[in-house]
Design a protein around this nucleic acid. Sequence first.
DNA 1: ATCTTCAGCGAACGTTTGTGCGCTGAAATA
DNA 2: TATTTCAGCGCACAAACGTTCGCTGAAGAT
Lengths: 210, 210
Amino acid sequence: MNTRTQEKAQTRQKILDAASRLSAERGFSSLSLRAVAQEAGIGPSSFYRHFTDLDDLGLALVDQVGMNLRLLVRRARQSILEDGGRNVVRAPIRIFMDLAATNRNLFRLLLGEGSGSTPAFREAIAKEIQRFTSDLVEDLKRGAAFTGRPLAHVECAAEAMVTVAFNLGAAAVDRSAAEREETTERIIREVRIIMRGAEAMAAGWEPAHA
Amino acid sequence: MNTRTQEKAQTRQKILDAASRLSAERGFSSLSLRAVAQEAGIGPSSFYRHFTDLDDLGLALVDQVGMNLRLLVRRARQSILEDGGRNVVRAPIRIFMDLAATNRNLFRLLLGEGSGSTPAFREAIAKEIQRFTSDLVEDLKRGAAFTGRPLAHVECAAEAMVTVAFNLGAAAVDRSAAEREETTERIIREVRIIMRGAEAMAAGWEPAHA
DNA sequence: ATCTTCAGCGAACGTTTGTGCGCTGAAATA
DNA sequence: TATTTCAGCGCACAAACGTTCGCTGAAGAT
């Protein structure tokens, strides 16, 4: 690859990082082209060599955030495989929360910008989370086949789990370690409830009525 | 009450309405004092007669949104009481979604601004949703006592339900009626899963393992 | 009838915003 | 070596921003 294109990609990345860093404080929707350029260490007019718009930047940012997230998750998944069967809920969520804590900006962007800015931006984020949910569906099916405990409405259950984990997790990202710990446990419990519900439905169990 | 103070309260309300209307498009965090003033039909400088800041406005807005929400919910709850026992999940969620559809701005503010702006604003919103959850906890306990089906971890279950309903609901607010319908059914299913899980746990039910 | 209060206004300020333009100098190409 | 490409820069501009100031005129108080 050319030295030229290499350097261009490099400053492009600097812009993306700057945007990610700045959007952590006030949200992506309320940040300015000039501020981003300054944080990236380039002049305002140079910005246009890489992106046409702030919206354009936003889409690229979501793209990259999604890629990073999937990479991290894939790596995490491998380390779970060693843990045979036990802690099917606890281990993944612990990893998820650690990930969120060490990649705040990344998660904040994915979670805080639910309705912040342009529709395209919104939808890009939604799609990214949906992809995450799809992966979880696969995992759940695999897990169910392994433990012999089928789940009803896997897609819905997965969606509920992801929604709970992402949302409560996002709220805890900026809290103290102790509070984060407490929140993590609560998420685990809630995901367990969902899991148990899906299992109960699959087994046809119903509560006795008085 | 004086005509004077009455009129003041009136324009104050006009400002709040204007902010609510405008924040629906781009989010509260990215709106300007001048734009709000213009939408409210007053000069920029008159804004300061009612609020010191945009943050100040934000807090007042959350306050009012919370009040309206609680009012609507209370009204909705009464109309549920007629529906004895059956549709414990479906009826409330249908009402909730109708509420969300006819009060978009209200819900969008409560849901989209998760990390948009200042911490005080964030926390005010979090507190409002928490209050909503507390109410649901009470309802669930009452319902459980009535149907004789106890729930485990009521607080957690309620939190999960609220999180799912608010989040998926918020995403659907801007969609077509058909998509909203589809989303509503999915929310109902997911809340049912949570409910069933909490019931199963309370009953000590566990899935048979292979 | 006189005086006080104060919501709303318009003008002005200094900043910050997005964006266009032409230049530069090093890297890529020929 | 001569030529082309183009990322980055500085400058300029119009527009929008938050905020201050003094004025006005109707409502409230005396």
